[in-house]
C-alpha cells in the first residue's frame, strides 16, 4: 500500500483521527459513564454539587465505606426481583426467535422459489405491515384479548411478537434464499427428494449464516421491544424493559433511581456481548437488505 497516489497528507490524517475519536466518544461514552456510575450511590452519580463527585465518589465512600457499591444491583435484582423480569425476557426472546425463524425460513424459501405474481403482492403487503407502528397494532389487540381472557400471558406476547416479526424475517430470509442457486434444490429433487426434503437436506445446510443473521435481528426486536410487552403483559409477567420504565415511576424516593440505573446497565450487558461475538453477522445483516435494494 505504498502507492504515493493513495497516501494522505498529514492534516487530513489528523483530521480523520480527531473525527473518529469524537465520534467514538459520542457513541460509547454514555454507556461507559452509566456503567461506571451504576456502582456509585445516587448522591454521586446525580451530584448537585460537582460532577467530579461521580468519578471520585465521596458520598459512596461516606455511605458504604468503599469506593464502589453494589447497592443499586442488590436493590434491583434482589429487592425488586428484577431476576424474574430477566427470566421472562429470556423465555419471550428464546421462543420468539425459534418460532420466527421456523416460520420465516419456510415462508422465505417459498417466496424466493415461486415465480408467480402473488409473491410480489405478499412481499409488498409485508413491507406495509413492517412499517405499521406497533402501538397501532396493539390498540387492535387489547379489546379482543380482554374479551378472550388471554391478556397478560407470556404465550400471547410471544405469539404477537412472532407475528410482528414475520414481515421483517420474511424479507430478510427471502433475500438470503435468492442468493442460493436454484440448481441446488433442483438437483436434489432430480435425485428423488420431495420439495421439503430438498429444502431441509440441501438448502438449509448452506443457509445457516443467513438464518443466524436473521435470528440475531429477531432477537434484537424481541429483546428491545417496549410497546408490545408493556401493554400486553400483566404486572407479574412483565419483562425487563417495561420493568425499567416502572422503576422510573418510583424514582421520587431517594435511592430508587440507582435501581433503574443498575437495571439499565444489566439490560445493556447482553447486547454488549452480542455485538462482541456477532459483529460480523450484524454488519452483514444490515447490508443484506441494502444490496438487494
Amino acid at each position: 500500500m505504498s502507492n504515493p497516489a493513495t497516501k494522505k497528507p498529514m492534516p487530513l490524517v489528523a483530521l480523520s483521527i480527531a473525527f473518529i475519536v469524537i465520534w467514538l466518544m459520542i457513541a460509547a461514552f454514555p454507556f461507559l459513564w452509566t456503567m461506571w456510575g451504576s456502582f456509585k450511590v445516587e448522591g454521586d452519580f446525580f451530584s448537585r454539587a460537582d460532577w467530579m463527585n461521580a468519578i471520585t465518589g465521596p458520598a459512596t465512600q461516606l455511605q458504604t465505606g468503599g469506593r464502589f457499591t453494589l447497592e443499586g444491583y442488590y436493590g434491583a435484582w434482589v429487592e425488586q426481583a428484577f431476576w424474574r423480569n430477566a427470566l421472562n425476557t429470556l423465555i419471550v426472546v428464546v421462543f420468539t426467535v425459534l418460532i420466527s425463524l421456523t416460520l420465516g425460513t419456510l415462508g422465505g424459501y417459498a417466496l424466493a422459489r415461486s415465480g408467480f405474481k402473488y409473491t410480489f403482492w405478499i412481499l409488498m403487503a409485508a413491507l406495509v405491515f413492517r412499517a405499521m407502528p406497533h402501538v397501532t397494532l396493539v390498540s387492535g389487540y387489547l379489546l379482543p384479548f380482554f374479551e378472550l381472557n388471554i391478556w397478560g400471558h407470556l404465550t400471547t406476547t410471544i405469539v404477537v411478537l412472532v407475528a410482528i416479526n414475520q414481515p421483517f424475517t420474511l424479507w430478510m430470509l427471502h433475500s438470503f434464499f435468492l442468493s442460493i442457486p436454484k440448481d441446488l434444490d433442483e438437483a436434489a429433487m432430480v435425485d428423488g427428494c420431495t420439495r421439503f426434503q430438498a429444502f431441509r437436506l440441501a438448502v438449509i445446510p448452506v443457509m445457516w449464516p443467513g438464518v443466524i443473521t436473521t435470528g440475531l435481528f429477531s432477537f434484537l426486536l424481541a429483546y428491545n421491544d417496549f410497546t408490545v410487552t408493556a401493554m400486553l403483559l400483566s404486572e407479574e409477567n412483565t419483562t425487563m424493559v417495561p420493568q425499567i420504565d416502572s422503576f422510573l415511576g418510583s424514582t421520587q424516593e431517594k435511592g430508587k433511581v440507582m435501581y433503574a440505573v443498575a437495571a439499565v446497565v444489566s439490560a445493556i450487558l447482553p447486547l454488549f456481548l452480542l455485538i462482541l461475538f456477532f459483529q460480523r453477522q450484524i454488519v452483514s445483516g444490515l447490508t443484506a437488505g441494502a444490496v438487494k435494494g
Binding site: 417459498a110 403487503a125 405491515f129 405499521m132 390498540s139 414481515p167 420439495r195 429444502f199
Partner: peptide
C-alpha cells in the same frame, strides 16, 4: 413451484400475519 407447494410452505407465516397484523388493523378501524 406449484401453488400447492407454495401454500404448504408459506401458510404458517401468512396465517400469523393475517391474524395478528391484518385483522387487528380491521379491528382498529
Amino acid at each position: 413451484m406449484p401453488h400447492k407447494t407454495f401454500l404448504a410452505f408459506i401458510w404458517p407465516s401468512l396465517f400469523a400475519m393475517i391474524l395478528f397484523i391484518a385483522i387487528p388493523i380491521v379491528s382498529v378501524g
